[in-house]
Structures are given as C-alpha cells and as structure tokens.
Design a binder for these strands. Sequence first.
DNA 1: AACGACGTCTCATATAATGAGACAAAATAT
DNA 2: ATATTTTGTCTCATTATATGAGACGTCGTT
Lengths: 260, 260
Amino acid sequence: MGVVTGDGTVGKALTVLDQVAGIGRPVRMRELLETSEFPKPTLYRLLQTLTNQGMLTYNTEAQTYAPGIRLVRLAHVAWSQASLAPIARPHVDALAANLREAVHVAQIDNGQVVFVDKRQASTKFSTLAQAGQVAPAYCTGVGKAILAFLSEEDLEQALLQQAFHQYTPATHTSANTLRAELETIRAEGIAFDREEHAAGIISIAAPILTPSRRVVGSISIATATNRHSLEGLGKFRPALLECAQKIGAEAQSWQPPSLP
Amino acid sequence: MGVVTGDGTVGKALTVLDQVAGIGRPVRMRELLETSEFPKPTLYRLLQTLTNQGMLTYNTEAQTYAPGIRLVRLAHVAWSQASLAPIARPHVDALAANLREAVHVAQIDNGQVVFVDKRQASTKFSTLAQAGQVAPAYCTGVGKAILAFLSEEDLEQALLQQAFHQYTPATHTSANTLRAELETIRAEGIAFDREEHAAGIISIAAPILTPSRRVVGSISIATATNRHSLEGLGKFRPALLECAQKIGAEAQSWQPPSLP
DNA sequence: AACGACGTCTCATATAATGAGACAAAATAT
DNA sequence: ATATTTTGTCTCATTATATGAGACGTCGTT
C-alpha cells in the first residue's frame, strides 16, 4: 500500500531513502538495519549508492546517514512544480496576516495528506521545515476536506488506503461513519478535525476546488482546544472559503501529481 | 564530473530524474530523448519506474512528466536537514527587513553553489521556487566566499571542478587569477561578484564560518548595476558580516552534506 | 586479553535490466 | 481520404547488475 514495490533496484533504493528521510535526524546503519527488509550487505550497498549519488550524505565521524544536497536541489524543483504551495502562498499569507493561528496547505498522496506549506503572521516559527509532514486523511480536517470532494472512484480507492486506527475517542474507525460525515462536509463546504488525530488539536479546513470542481488540495486553520473552541474556529469559515476559492481559481491549469 | 556515474540502475534513474527536474516544466518523453544518453526503451522504462514510485508524475492527456509528490515529501525533509536555510532564515529575515535587495543563502555542492534560500522584505516575489538554483562557484560572490575559506585539500578539489567558462569579460578564466583573488577575499572577509557571471549583476557575499572556522555556506546581497554600484554594495559589509557570524555560531554542530 | 558490535568486503549465484526491433495509435503531410 | 511520419509502448535473447551468506577488520566493552 502506498509505495509501489516491484520496481527492482530503484524501488529498493528509494525505500532506503525514505527510511533515512523518515527518521528526521542523522541515523546509523545499525539502526536502519533493525527495521529494514534488506540483509546487511544489501542495505550497506544501497546506502553507499545513494551517498555516492548525493541523495544521502555520510558523516564519517558519527557514522550516520542523512539526506544529501542533491535531494535539496531536487527538492526545490519538486516543491515549485509538484506542490500547490507556490500558487497558494500569497493567498494564504493574506489570510494569515489577520490571524494568530497558522494556516496549512495540504495535498493528497496515496491516501495520506502531505502538508506542503504552513504560514503564520508571526515569523518566530520555522515554516518550511514542517512542510512535507504526512498525516492520515480520515482523521484530519485537511484530509476529510479533500476526501469529501474526490470523484466516486478516487474516494473508493482512498478509503481502501485508510487504516482507521483509533488515535482518540473521536476518531472514525470505519468507512461508513466517515462516509456520513463526508456528506455533511460536502453540504457545508467545511471540515472539522474534532480532536480526531491528536487530543487537544482541532482545525477547520476547506477544499481547494478548481472552477471545474476538481479537488487539488485543502487549507486549514489548526489550533489547540485551550486557545479556541470549534465554535470559535467556525467564525473563520467565510475567510477560509474565500481564500480556498481564490487559490482554486488560479489552480485551474495546475495539475496535481497523479497517483502512482 | 559532478554526478558520480557507475552506480548501476539507481544512478541511471537519478540521472533521468535530474533531467526532468532540470527542465523546470512538464516535459514529453521525446524531448527528454533528444538529450538523453539512454536508448528509447531504456529511457521509457526508467521514466515508468520513477513514475510508479511517485518520484515523477505523468499527465496522460499532455503525455508529460514532471516531479512527483513523493519528491515533495522527501524535499522538505532534505531541506530541513541538509540545508542551512532553517538555521539561517531568521537571521537573514532580520537583515533583509532593512534592505530593498534580496539576500541569498548558498552552499557548495560538487564545486557548484546551490542557493538554498532567498529572502526579501517585499513579499511580491516567489522565493522558494528560486531556491535550489545552481551556479558555478568561480564567478559568483557566494561561490568565491566559500572557496576562499575551504581547506587546502578541498580547495584543490573544488578548483578542478571549475569550468572557467568566460561568461563576461570580467570572468576568471584560470585557477591562478582566481587564487590571487581568494587571498584578497580571505584578508577582507568579503567577496564581490563584479559582473563575472552575468552582465549587469553584482553582489557582495560573506562566508558562513562556524566558531571552529569551518565554512558551511555563504550569504550575499545581489543587485543590478543600474540599482547599486560596488561601492554602494560595500556599505552592506558590516551588516552582512554580522549576519553571517550569527548564522555560523548556530551552525557549529550542523554538518553540511559531504561531497559524494 | 577476550568478546561483542558494527561496518565493510568477497564472489558464486540469482535476478534485473538492456536495447534492437517490432508494433500500435495518433499526428501530419499529401 | 490516404499515406507517411512521429511518438509511445512492448518483447525477449542477451548482458549487466545485484544479491546475500559468510568472512574480515576495527572499535568498544567487559
């Protein structure tokens, strides 16, 4: 599920690359080996290949691997072409200027949502470093906002890719209860995360729809329950919808990366 | 030079990935084939593999390839770990707030410089989309600022990687004239691009040195000759050095990706 | 000094990839 | 309307690459 297997050595190398990238800090080969599907010499060789190619970097003193500068080079190209963030950013900045909360931009990818940008009026917080974060679709505001507007076929496919793991008592644990809520989201144009993914975190989200009603992503305002209530978040609905509508208008010719 | 060959199928796939990413817009297989080193079925299969893996996306209507969402996911991890930008950004924002010009952050990669961030007080211009851009080291301010502070061994290696192509009459065309200027840069702590890479474009740059005098990158202020003179750029020297020093202090434990 | 942990290397064997040529569909030229 | 060209896709005999058990070396721990 998710990452396609059966693509020979390239697939294996990318699996290793994902594993290193997923750790989020420099990591030794031994630690990678613990959860790797590959035997030690194979893992070693794949790490060597990726390092030689600049996709990973190796710290000889600490004996650790980390993402490499070639990945950074590819990163920016990918971000500017394959994500909504360049189109969305000016609109999200305008929205965020009037808020104390952060505004997120997300897209769907293999049934998960990828946060591609986060903007906040305050510049205290590093933004891009938190982009690229992945979350489940079925229990996030941004995820449900996208699911609700997928085509019937894409929705069925996406529902098969949900784990329905119960993160909190509020989490959907079946496709059927989720379907019912998706109907409501379609009617109201807005999705809420009611502490479904993490206790104490709520959000309000709107889908980004092109003029031809194709869903390409979503935006959300997330906050902590000790800062806002759901009712309080509801007040952001008009501004959020307007912002999403403006992004959608510019995204008519933008093509989201298709599912593998 | 630059990208290591001899890494089998993974190396080939990454070469194709770079080619698609380097185009900067969706591209058809035929166009890729024109400059590809691979025969048609090989290129076709590598493109299929990368698309299956989510590193590229394929638009069936336009029959074009473009970077895929999996690359975006990897992108953000790489950017936050493998680039100086997260550390540098708050300092560069503070510097840029007082300027009309853009401030760039760069790192060295295989003898070239990679721009990893660009900040400007005005938000009119898309910033991140221009990061990831690569330029030669020998004829850019950021490049010369880094070269001047490399170890003897790393400098020799980097000089071998310079093409010394003459972009303008001001461009260095030999290692010897460059070495002389690197001495001056070391003495003054500042590098200038005197229309060496592009006519009409000048910049002032400072290396980012950790407390242990390791060069990890550089920052620069670039402008057009019809907006500033070199003398005018010289006035930014104290602020640029201070900004670089602050970044360097925080970068002591940060490890730049090592050369493959 | 002995042992364990971890990274690195070897090579017989297995698997994956190659690329010329063929084919199909769409686009272009006549 | 028909012929030709272009482009993308597929096949398969052959070649090249990759595998992974076991061994080895270095470093850390006991």
